[in-house]
């Protein structure tokens, strides 16, 4: 068999393998993508919460996308404490002003950034939250101060529809 012939044959086999591999890939993708959130889950985007009954110093917890959201009406002391902290002292530096646009209201995903437990309210060394699972301490702005959690608790997208209604998502 001449060299030329061998080459052409090789090309044919390579092309067949390549086209076959593309097909296998294209077939596998739907089987993987089906496990992603489906259209009905994606559509459940927002929740509206009436916070008129929440007094200063109290927290309510609401469910959003299957996770707890803490809505805390902070006292003046807590706000002052949160705003006085120097950014250098923080493991994950974020200003309280950026976390709570309206200082009285802290709206935060109540999920410890370590491994996903729900921290306890008004516990820990920083008067904020304390996660009982592995001992992470959060301050009154929900920022990580001590313990294994890598980042501050997440602030979801939310807005005040009016003075009493918060729309999360």
């Amino acid at each position: 068999m001449s060299e030329k012939k061998t080459k052409r044959r090789d090309f044919l086999f390579t092309a067949t393998y390549a086209v076959g591999a593309v097909g296998v890939g294209a077939t596998i993708w739907p089987m993987i993508d089906q496990m992603n959130p489906d259209a009905s889950v994606k559509a459940l985007a927002s929740t509206e919460v009436d916070v008129s009954a929440v007094d200063p110093g109290k927290t309510i917890t609401v469910l959003w996308r299957g996770k707890p959201v803490f809505i805390r009406r902070r006292t003046q002391d807590e706000i002052a404490e949160a705003r006085s902290v120097k950014l250098e002292d923080l493991k994950h530096p974020e200003k309280d002003e950026d976390r709570a646009a309206n200082p009285e209201w802290l709206v935060m995903l109540g999920v410890c950034t370590h491994l996903g437990c729900v921290p306890l309210d008004q516990k820990g060394d920083y008067n904020g939250w304390f996660c009982p699972c592995h001992g992470s301490h959060y301050d009154t702005s929900g920022r990580i101060r001590k313990g294994p959690a890598p980042t501050n608790m997440e602030i979801p997208k939310y807005e005040f529809v009016d003075a009493n209604i918060i729309k999360i998502g």
Partner: peptide, 27 residues
């Protein structure tokens, strides 16, 4: 993974697969 084997929900879950699950209709 998406089907629910319950007399009240089986039919609905099949429709859910057909409509909402990514590529559910294809599968």
């Amino acid at each position: 993974m998406h089907y629910i084997a319950h007399a009240d929900m089986a039919f609905d879950s099949v429709e859910h697969i057909m409509r909402d699950v990514n590529y559910g209709w294809l599968i």
